[in-house]
Design a binder for these strands. Structure first.
Lengths: 189, 189
DNA sequence: ATGTTACGATACAGACCTGTATTGTTCGTC
DNA sequence: GACGAACAATACAGGTCTGTATCGTAACAT
């Protein structure tokens, strides 16, 4: 049996875990190398700088997000149910001890300058989510899809933020309920 | 004429501005001293460490928040209108270039360990806001005040977060509208 | 006038940070 | 078996960070 994890993979997994849990500025490259059991030069062989590693992590998280989004919403035939399913899944996730908030929110907070590479990746990701909400809201027959999408967007990031600030006992227990109320208010019966 | 700002005041104002704008970890004590035109030893004479300065800033922000909260809600006689007034004012604020998110959210993101002093101050502040929402929701006759309060709470922090991530052109233009929908849904006509 | 206190400026210690250079070793391939 | 790439380990350079120590001075009170 092959328990093969290449040094690059070990490094990346460790960096992902540490960045997500403790923050980008709090974790140094020495810590990543030591914790993953690789040499520091191996890190710099695969990524030209710490910022590139951060960007790589964020892009991977973006992929993971959309994969999960697809999994979560694919069984819901109607756009309205897709939105509800997403917020139910998000509510479950943010009540989980594995949740440490949103990697994109976190990077934007730690690097508020919008021209920082990681912040830009975060912005693009969030704009995509926003656009997806808009599209689903439109398909669901919302009177004002843009408004509904943005209101749901605020709920989502509020829930992520609650998880990072409060841990598992956060105020997001009724996230999906709030989403349902907003959706129903925007879609004519 | 007395243009008296004591060194401590100059220092504190500068630290507040820099922390809020650029983040706590990104700003060093040397920068604060230089930018405010005081000696570094003066900083350490008034605050035993950078962490104490951060805590002092957060406590001052907590006071400011509640002063503004009082100002914003005092003209609304009914608890329901107090809630609405708060979210209208918040919507206006987060569309302002002076808004760089929420100082408490920011510190909790940069120092996720809940035992960090700044994180604790942030938690206490947010719990107070949550409790105030609950109280107002109860007084307004909400069927489930706890649920409404937490849902409004998510909206609030989502709006703060949107401001830090997107700047002035953020998705919080319909924050107050969302709050109204949630409030109306929870209060029997 | 004299002493005390607050202050600005500067240098410093020790730790940590990113990124590079070096050395030896292991592993796969020819 | 020999070669070369990837790797771990370590040391290092240059910068930045927090916090301290030192020195000279200006304001102020007694």
């Amino acid at each position: 049996m092959k328990t093969e994890a290449t040094p690059k993979e070990k490094l990346f997994q460790t960096a992902a875990r540490l960045f997500y849990q403790h923050g980008y500025r709090a974790i140094g490259v020495d810590t990543i190398a030591a914790e993953s059991g690789i040499g520091k030069m191996t890190l710099y062989r695969h990524y030209p700088s710490k910022d590139y590693l951060i960007v790589a992590y964020l892009k991977a998280q973006d992929e993971t997000f959309w994969k999960n989004f697809e999994l979560i919403t694919k069984d819901a035939p109607q756009p309205r149910e897709k939105l509800v399913a997403f917020f139910e899944a998000l509510q479950n996730y943010v009540k989980t001890p594995t949740c440490h908030g949103c990697p994109f929110i976190n990077v934007a907070t730690e690097y508020p300058e919008t021209d920082y590479p990681g912040h830009q990746v975060a912005l693009e990701h969030k704009q995509s989510v926003r656009a997806t909400f808009r599209q689903l809201a439109k398909e669901a027959g919302a009177r004002k899809p843009d408004v509904l999408a943005d209101q749901l967007f605020l709920l989502m990031d509020g829930a992520y933020m609650a998880a990072r600030m409060f841990g598992t006992r956060n105020p997001a227990s009724h996230l999906a309920g709030a989403a349902r109320i907003l959706i129903d208010a925007h879609i004519p019966a």
